[in-house]
Design a protein around this nucleic acid. Sequence first.
DNA 1: GCGTTTCTTGCAATATCTTCCAAAACCTTC
DNA 2: GAAGGTTTTGGAAGATATTGCAAGAAACGC
Lengths: 253, 253
Amino acid sequence: MTGEERQKRIEDHLLKVEFASLEELSELVDTSVSTVRRDVILLETKGIVRRTHGGARLVNPKSDEFTFNTRDTHQLSEKELIGRKCADLIQPNQTLIIDAGTTCYHVARYLEPKAPQVFTNSLPVANLFAAANKLEVVVSGGVIYPRLGVLVGPLAVEAFQKIRADVAIMSCGGITTDGISNSHGLLIDMQRAMIHAARRVIFCIDSSKFGRQSISQLCDLDAIDMVVTDKLVPAEIGKALKKAEVEVVVAAN
Amino acid sequence: MTGEERQKRIEDHLLKVEFASLEELSELVDTSVSTVRRDVILLETKGIVRRTHGGARLVNPKSDEFTFNTRDTHQLSEKELIGRKCADLIQPNQTLIIDAGTTCYHVARYLEPKAPQVFTNSLPVANLFAAANKLEVVVSGGVIYPRLGVLVGPLAVEAFQKIRADVAIMSCGGITTDGISNSHGLLIDMQRAMIHAARRVIFCIDSSKFGRQSISQLCDLDAIDMVVTDKLVPAEIGKALKKAEVEVVVAAN
DNA sequence: GCGTTTCTTGCAATATCTTCCAAAACCTTC
DNA sequence: GAAGGTTTTGGAAGATATTGCAAGAAACGC
């Protein structure tokens, strides 16, 4: 087997599994670990994989391109539930604003069949739709906020000030009776512009956010129209939401 | 069996299997390895196969510059060479505009250590930098042009009209004595805005683009400052570039 | 911290490539 | 059909590239 053939097979394997140990790969192509290591170094210079201790990972995995690693596994199934439920609430042909954040990302994953027009400031969401050319996806400009893959800053805010949409699908760092908050000032300006640009504002909030207060205040409960969550809302917050005429949807299995 | 017959059979075989070792091929056509090697060299000069250590691989003609797939291996090593060379030409702390396209993507890959400020309309480039929080990356807004992962449209053009950068690193579909052209009208407006926003314009053009005329004319040779490529430029184009005072850099091993 | 795993580096063994040459096949010309 | 020249072929020698291994360095997990 020639070197290229081996590298091709390694690449193909990684396309399937996204990550593999060198040992595993050396067995796959029936050669020493040294050689596999060299192959992987070569594939790295080509930008196809990224080397890690003990293995190699595909640079551009097909599907979930972005790993919000720290929070990714956290509350995963809840977020998926919320995502599916929220996507159900969207009418076909509505124009959407989709916020960054893992929960919103999961909404986006279930939206594809509905073929709406989508406006987003989230790189992961943009990547999700980049391959499918069925629907029009507009990306706000902005500076990349690295950990989250969000576009922030004046360019992003301006972009949202220029448009109008039927629905904004948002996420946040916390919700209390005082309103909704998020973890970084840079996000706040943009989220306000998003809320302002949408006729209807839906917040996707997993239950771990209830009663939590993040550092920057985003808006009062009055400003929003619906909350999609995975568990019953605590009584106090529920009362405040009712008073603010916010509809609450609980996604259940 | 004549030489041509043999080469035809080698070609046919490679169409099926994509790779083959010389040994394998020599058995197939029942001749010495030396002869097969010569055949493969000939097929390489015709651009049908690519030689590798120990074998031959079919070249895959189905890609053009802007079909974006980082795993695409068409002209890969050339693009890598260009990418590295072009990245070398960038001074630390220069602000950059990076165009979409595979060649520019490879430039971006070698830029990371330089930590400049980067402005791009390419989703793949944005993704590349999204994880590394060393440098500031600004993404132009715009509609995702699906196949390519480029952001296009008014939002993108406006974003580039607002900024100024030291260098623009660009790619294109073709270059002739008449100037530079590209394959999609949507790209043209944006690329013009990019060129206008940069003090210095560098085009990364692999040798397969020489003499090729894409559908939309982008600009005259006067408008650009430097061409980075992988082979010596054909005489006629070279003369035109000299007349337009364009510096030509050839990336070699 | 400390033991373990993995990585890097240098090296020798092996495989392949290049370059050359002589033999064979083929073509031209008479 | 034979002589003389050209092209193609197979192979050999030295150059180059690849491979697997081992020792020390670095990174990781506990």
